[in-house]
Amino acid sequence: MNRNISKLQRIDARDLNYRELNRLIKDAANEGIKNIHLTNVNGQRYIGTGVNNAPKININGVPGNDLGAFMDGCSINVSGNGEDGIGNTMNSGRIVINGSAGDILGYSMRGGEIFVKGNVGYRVGIHMKSYKNMYPVIIIGGCARDFLGEYMAGGLLIVLGLNRKSKNPIVGSYCGTGMHGGKIFIRGNVEPWQLGKEVRVYEPNKNKDDFSLIEKYLRQYCELFSLDFDSIIKTNFTKLLPGSSRPYGKLYAY
């Protein structure tokens, strides 16, 4: 049996550049250490990228861009905010952000979950795709800016808009432009100006399958952030689906 499994490794990230820090994380993971606690993280990029053996990585501080890019199986918990490019082309694993996150979160991710407690920036969930049993899920507790779910090809995106001021829209404009797969659920209503041409709006919660799909992930989300599932699910959700799985099929003359 690997004696390292129960061991916890603490790494102080102060004054380390990203390459040095990531080397230490990779070495620990290669030794089979399953719990890695990082303190004083201050903008170091690519944490969780290229890390084997799927450890849990706890981050105190603010990790830099591309947190968990190309990540495979790690479970990352960030105590505060995240930056841009979280979960870029991620394959599997989980990233939990206890604050807000920046732009292009979950770009092209194919599997795993990203749970953000607060708000996210622009271009979130672009070109998410699912394949066989790989099913990417993003849940955003607050609001999202423009281009959410653009070119989405698969997976699940949920925006809750909790603690939202009424003048702040829950999602920005061009939501779901070019979408050709997957599902977006937005808690509450969206206006036509917020939506891309290729999405269709469906009546929320009419369908039992939709409810159980949301429930499956939202319960985990609520548990993580100590939120009350029942009161969140009470508000109606708007469901966005692609109008066609081939939005650009008629563009060409053959």
Partner: peptide, 17 residues
Amino acid sequence: RMIPEGTDAISPAPHHD
């Protein structure tokens, strides 16, 4: 490609990252 059979594979004009 790791996408479902028979679906269009759409590559956006830029890398959005």
